[in-house]
Simulated scan of single mutants.
Amino acid sequence: MPTRARRTQRRNQVLSRERILDTAIGLLDSGGEGALTVRAMTDRLATGSGAIYYHVGNRDELLDAATESVITAALSTRSAGARATPEDEIRAVALALFDAIAEHHWLATRLTLQIIRNPVGPVTVGIFERLGRQVGALGVPRPRWFDAASTLVHYILGAISQNARVEGDTSGIDPDADREEFFDQTSRAWRDLDAESYPFMHAIVGQIREHDDREQFLTGIAVVLDGLARLR
């Protein structure tokens, strides 16, 4: 028979906030928001719903906490270079957020909702603080800090959310279609456009099938950074 101390230790492990969040993130990763139910959580954790509510609150609060957990980890990323520049740090954070949403497809929607609904929450404040410090380090004048940081945040969130949708998390796109199939269909549709009316679309039709999402994302970061440099 296990001792009372061992039973207490096991119970505390099961009911820890960290364990609950890890379980929630696992459910979200495997099946999206629809998979995150109280019943699924209690089955996975072998506990009652009251314990979950005690540690993280209701389902919306659990989603917010799971989002905060993933984003906080991404924001802790630092550039690998010994003499990292502000540009290096911005790229490191931007790619960490990009990779987090690529890994956790449900995160794009939840992150957007956090930014909109909770501007004083840890996710919104964390993103602006982490990137905003680098905007200041770039030499952008203080009166332009908010506009500059907002432009950077808007580009990052918009670009990574679009990539997340391409990978199948948005209604209107076949969730079973893979990336290559999606871009193949798109390039064929663009090629069928009238060349005289849409010369630009015909000029880039081959590029859509060959482009790398991560490299394209970094190109956008470079464009934004170049623009911020002009504010000095």
Rank of each mutant, 00 (worst) to 15 (best):
L27G: 05
L27D: 07
L27P: 08
L28Y: 00
L28I: 02
D29P: 08
D29N: 15
D29Q: 09
S30W: 00
G31M: 05
G31H: 07
G31C: 05
G32E: 06
G32Q: 02
E33R: 14
E33C: 15
G34C: 05
G34K: 02
A35F: 04
L36W: 00
L36A: 08
T37V: 14
T37P: 06
V38N: 12
V38H: 08
R39S: 13
M41Y: 00
D43K: 07
D43R: 08
D43G: 06
R44C: 15
L45G: 04
L45Q: 06
A46S: 14
A46W: 12
A46Y: 13
T47R: 05
G48S: 15
G48C: 00
S49P: 08
S49Y: 10
G50I: 03
G50C: 10
G50T: 14
I52T: 06
I52N: 01
I52D: 05
Y53D: 01
Y54A: 12
Y54C: 04
H55V: 04
H55M: 10
V56F: 01
G57L: 10
G57V: 07
N58M: 03
N58P: 05
N58T: 06
R59Q: 03
D60Y: 14
D60C: 15
E61Q: 14
E61M: 10
L62S: 11
L62T: 04
L62Y: 01
L63R: 08
L63I: 12
D64E: 13
A65E: 12
A65M: 02
A65S: 14
A65V: 03
A66Y: 01
A66R: 00
T67G: 15
T67W: 10
T67I: 08
E68G: 11
E68W: 14
E68K: 09
E68R: 11
S69T: 15
S69R: 15
S69I: 09
S69M: 15
V70A: 10
I71P: 06
T72Q: 09
A73C: 06
A74W: 01
A74M: 12
L75H: 08
S76I: 10
T77P: 13
T77D: 04
T77V: 15
R78G: 14
R78S: 13
R78A: 15
S79W: 03
S79V: 11
S79I: 09
S79Y: 09
A80Q: 06
A82Y: 00
A82K: 11
A84K: 02
A84Q: 04
A84T: 06
A84F: 07
P86C: 12
P86K: 03
E87G: 12
E87M: 08
D88Y: 08
D88N: 07
E89P: 03
I90R: 02
R91Y: 03
R91N: 04
A92H: 01
A92I: 07
V93Y: 00
A96R: 03
F98D: 05
F98Q: 08
D99H: 06
D99P: 05
D99T: 03
D99R: 04
A100S: 15
A100V: 08
E103A: 15
E103N: 14
E103W: 08
H104F: 13
H104L: 12
